[in-house]
Design a protein around this nucleic acid. Structure first.
Length: 263
DNA sequence: ATGGTAGCGCTGCTA
């Protein structure tokens, strides 16, 4: 099974490129972030035409997460387990079960600047995700949390650790919040397969960062051991970051072998 | 060069 994740930076602006990518990458599941659409504007029919069911959690203008699947889409749940009906929560978390795997599409808050209230909210969001996993999921089940984490797990994941020091995405508290998900039982699938530095998934649009190789690896697929054990291949598709009108993120895809058949 | 681009939506915010 091929599971992918892509921050598309507006699905309205990116739909032709997403359709094109689905046509050649053919993931079984695609987690999308930053649709920037209201639910009513989500292009379900375009995806249905390509063989995908879809679930969307949107708010329009900002955020918005979706899951596309051609291997079933069941038990769709938006948001955190501890949300009450009164609480207005940003559209950053969506769950579904696809082909026997519990899948989450997440868009972690950016944090803006270290020490700001937005940064504190980012740390709290990551801890709330951890608490959600602890209270509602089993770490021995087949589960994968995919998305834009807005955190580069370690210095291999950034183009220049010295220049980025003191900023968001690399601060020790952010990395600790990510590591706490690992302690619960999630494995960085891409990193397990490829230990090399310099493999990025996001490049700022400005100053020619993509062409200068100034990127970060912040788009991750974090799988439980039961699923990560079957990971056979992963790719950050840099081709999808090239050409006219790309997202600032490249898609990440991960291939999982079918479970061994008992006898 | 404390710069730069893209998207949303219409002025400035978010990333």
């Amino acid at each position: 099974m091929r599971i992918a994740t892509w921050n598309v930076n507006s699905l309205k602006a990116r739909l032709p490129r997403v359709e094109e990518w689905l046509g050649y990458a053919r993931p079984d599941v695609l987690c999308i972030q930053e649709t920037k659409l209201a639910d009513a504007a989500f292009p379900s029919m375009a995806f249905a035409a390509l063989g995908y069911e879809a679930a969307h959690c949107g708010q329009g203008q900002w955020n918005g997460v979706a899951i596309l699947s051609r291997v079933g889409l069941d038990d769709v749940v938006a948001g955190f387990s501890d949300q009450d009906e009164e609480e207005t929560v940003e559209a950053r978390l969506l769950w579904a079960t696809c082909g026997g795997v519990r899948v989450a599409s997440v868009y972690v808050p950016n944090g803006r600047s270290v020490g700001s209230e937005h940064y504190e909210a980012k740390l709290e969001w990551l801890d709330r995700l951890r608490r959600h996993l602890v209270s509602t999921c089993r770490n021995d089940s087949e589960l994968v949390v995919c998305g834009d984490f807005n955190v580069a797990p370690d210095d291999r994941d950034v183009w220049d650790a010295t220049k980025l020091h003191g900023g968001t995405h690399v601060s020790p508290p952010e990395r600790a919040a990510l590591a706490a998900l690992g302690e619960w039982g999630l494995v960085d699938v891409f990193r397990r397969l490829y230990p090399d530095p310099g493999l990025y998934s996001w490049w700022d649009y400005r100053a020619g960062d993509f062409h200068q190789g100034r990127g970060l690896r912040i788009d991750l697929a974090l799988a439980t051991e039961a699923l990560a054990d079957r990971a056979s291949y992963a790719l950050i598709d840099r081709f999808a970051r090239k050409g006219k009108g790309p997202s600032d993120h490249a898609p990440l895809l991960c291939d999982f072998d079918d479970p061994a058949v008992g006898h």
